[in-house]
Every structure is written in C-alpha cells, then in structure tokens.
Design a binder for these strands. Structure first.
Lengths: 161, 161
DNA sequence: CCGGAATACTTGAGAGTTCAACTGTGTTCT
DNA sequence: AGAACACAGTTGAACTCTCAAGTATTCCGG
C-alpha cells in the first residue's frame, strides 16, 4: 500500500453526486414498495426472479446467485416471504440438501399488484429524468463496474421488472 | 393511474444492470469500511461531513441535511459514534432545542486511518473501471437523477472523500 | 467403502434502518 | 399573556442485514 492516489476534484464531485443519487434512488424505491406492497425492494426482486423462472421455482442457491445475495440473507428473506404465504419451500426429491423455493399464486398476485406502481417509480426516478442516450451510457458504465465487482457474472436477464 | 408504461427491453437491461452494479458497489464499500475501520459507510460519511465543517461541528439538522438522512437514523448513528468516542454532542447555548455534534480528535484519527483504504476501494470499484469520459457522463446522469430525487438540493461539496 | 472435504442451507446474535410516537423548545398570532 | 403551531431531536419496537457457527447431506480420493 504505497501513497494513496487521492481523488482529484472532478472525481470527488462525481463520486459524491453519484453516491447521493444512488442513495436517494434506493430509498425512493424501497419506500414506494414498502408503502404500496409491504415488501422491501430486495424481497420484491426475489419474487420477480422467481416469477421468471421455469415453474416459478428456483433453488436457494440459484436465487441467491441471481440476486447476488448471501445464503444467509436469502434464507431470512425467504423465511419471511414464506410466513406471508408468498413463496413455498420444499426439498428437492433425490437431494435432501437442496431447498426449492416456489412462488405461490398469492405471491404472483402481490407481484402483479405491485409491479405497475414500481415501474412508475422507476420511470419517475430514472428513465424520465435522463435521455435515451444517457441510459445507454449508464448501461455501459454499469457493465464496466460489474467487470470489477462481479467477475464472471452473466448479464442480467430481460423480462418484466 | 392509467395504463402502465412498462419498460422496454433496453430499459429493462439497463435497469437491471445498473441495480446490480449499485448493489455490489455498495456492499463492497460497506464491507471494506467495516472490516478496516469498524464503521459502516453511512457512519463514515457522517464523520467526513463533520471533518469538513467549520469547527468540525454541525447541528443534527445540518448533518442530516447533508447526508440526506432522516433525523431518527442520524440520531441513532450519532449515539453510536458518541459511545465510541468519535463525536461529542452538546446543546447550543441560547437554543436548548439544537444539538451540536462535533468530531473528536479520536474521530478525526479514525477518519485519517480509514481514508486511504476507502479511496483505494472507490478507485477499484469505480474510477479504475471506467474512463474519464464515462465518469463525466456518470456525473451528468447522477445530476439529472438528483433533479427528480432531490429537488432544490445543492450540488455536493468538493473536499476529501 | 470410509473419512475428510465440499455443498446447501439454517440459525442466532448483534447492528443498522425505519416508522410512528413522544418530549421539550421556540414562534406566532390574537 | 396564552393557545396553537412549528421545530429539533430522541426513543422504542419491528424489521432487515451481516457475520460467524452450526447442521445435514453428498461427493471424492485412497
């Protein structure tokens, strides 16, 4: 660890502006989802991932992988979602280690009800405030970040937010 | 609330890529800071804000404003920082409502020790992975987001990260 | 085919965040 | 002056996330 390569003034401003934007964006989304559907954003994302999976079911490990979540975090989350009846958990036949999580009809319903408001919020805080071209740049930048942060990670999938 | 303006495929990919990048970036920073200094990122930011203030002191309200933090969150945070001896709290003479938080020498020292590693991490996850030009674009995009998220918010300050 | 490593989670404790309610102080209006 | 209101912060409970351990299976080398 030699001398620190401090941030120059431009980098400082960029960094702080970015941090603040991300912080506010995250809070806005989380608050909107909690208010309108009772789910934190992270839990909502879990339901989305399940809804797009074949059979609307995934193993804990698969789901954790998609969400970049620790096993522990996911375990707690799924426990809560199961209590609420939004997902169901059962063992995979033939492998008693593996737990399969599947989205229940109730979970799907909660998702259907939450989605429109969520998408509106995503537009409000992001896509309505930047141009199409800026969005393209943002994606490139995000992909570059993922290079360092998520080596070997596939690009996220396509379907419904 | 008329028909939902769903995200098109490009927007979906951008959104998900961005979300994932931000999530990983945040975790990386938080983990690095907790490991190396025992402070969560939010607490570190509070110390930074104080260190840059005149007299290294701010009122709770001022600090909450700079950090875009709720009064409650800040109150809990400052309570913890005070227990650790990194900040001190006292009432403003002449206004018994107002609490002033000031950075202690110990707090300043913790900051000094944490800063280099933190900056390295910021470089690693952001500035080393994108070009100078992308950084400029990122700042513009972040500023645009802040237009919707933080109406009437001044641009963040300049000094040390 | 047996013992050690790897896999797939789960659990519990400790922190941090949120939300709603509450306390104590200034301000304002009449 | 007095009532109503606004302001500045704090508190407690519920919840979520993290980290370290622990449990239960399955895989693998000798």
């Amino acid at each position: 660890m030699a001398d620190t390569r401090w941030l120059d003034e431009d980098e400082q401003r960029t960094w702080r502006t970015f941090l603040r934007a991300v912080h506010l964006l995250d809070s806005a989304l989380d608050r909107q989802l909690r208010r309108d559907s009772g789910l934190p954003h992270a839990y909502y994302q879990a339901l989305v991932a399940l809804s797009e999976a074949p059979e609307r079911a995934l193993t804990m490990t698969e789901l954790a992988g998609l969400l970049r979540s620790s096993p522990s975090r996911l375990s707690h989350a799924v426990a809560r979602l199961e209590e609420d009846g939004l997902v169901r958990r059962f063992k995979r036949p033939g492998d008693r280690r593996t737990t399969i999580v599947s989205l229940t009809p109730e979970g799907m319903e909660v998702l259907r009800e939450a989605a429109p408001g969520h998408v509106e919020e995503v537009r409000r805080v992001l896509f309505d405030t930047i141009s199409r071209e800026q969005a393209d740049r943002l994606r490139e930048i995000s992909e570059a970040m993922l290079g360092a942060l998520d080596p070997g990670g596939e690009a996220p999938g396509r379907p419904a937010s």
